[in-house]
Amino acid sequence: MDNKVLEIKHLTKRYGAKVAVDDLSLDVCAGDIYGFIGQNGAGKTTTLRALTGILGFDEGEIFIDGNSVKEKPVLCKSLTAYIPDNPDLYEYLTGIQYLNFMGDVYEVPRDKRKERIDKYADMFRIAGDLGSLVSAYSHGMKQKLAIIGALLHEPKLMVLDEPFVGLDPEAAFKLKEVFRRMCEAGSAIFFSTHVLDVAEKLCNKIAIIKGGKLIASGNIEDVRGDESLESVFMEVLENDAR
């Protein structure tokens, strides 16, 4: 399909003898808000890091907007934004210095940069704190700053690892709004979460990973059927435990 923003084909990543991600394939299309769920150590973060070009992988292929992550890493990264679960921002910079750095790296024109910083800083209520050092920020404020930095270049694909952890309810609500608006504009969101309620209410597609293997994926209605996502998830775990 033409509107595939992310294509993961037979991704395999090993840490020594341990297979962290095992032959994983999935597609994320423009307009998708795709939730990626699994237990701790299931392989979620490894997958996210591989597709953002941070981590090399052993087998398979990953394409961002039709471009191979292996062959055109810089182009793929310019189309993507990644927010790790615990963003290690440069603590010796002020918020605005960090955003300007991100704007420079993604080559966002000054006028658009200013417009977007103003818009998102107001939205997430940290406009007044942008002159302070990042080291003075709370965890939630750092998360908000990382999100604003990631939104500056209007990425085609946004990859987030546990994006709602540390955000206050208002910021979480606004981030969901941003996700929806981005998807309406043709971007796609791929994020990992442990909060099944969020995944159920926000995502149109979902993937469940267990022990590095994809257990289920597709439209959320198809995956959960008549049950809640929580029941399906627990059922998957229990089946495997038996």
Binding site: T52, I54, V74, L75, Y82, P84
Partner: peptide, 8 residues
């Protein structure tokens, strides 16, 4: 992670 996820 931050640097390697950037288009550099």
């Amino acid at each position: 992670d931050t640097v390697m996820s950037l288009p550099i």
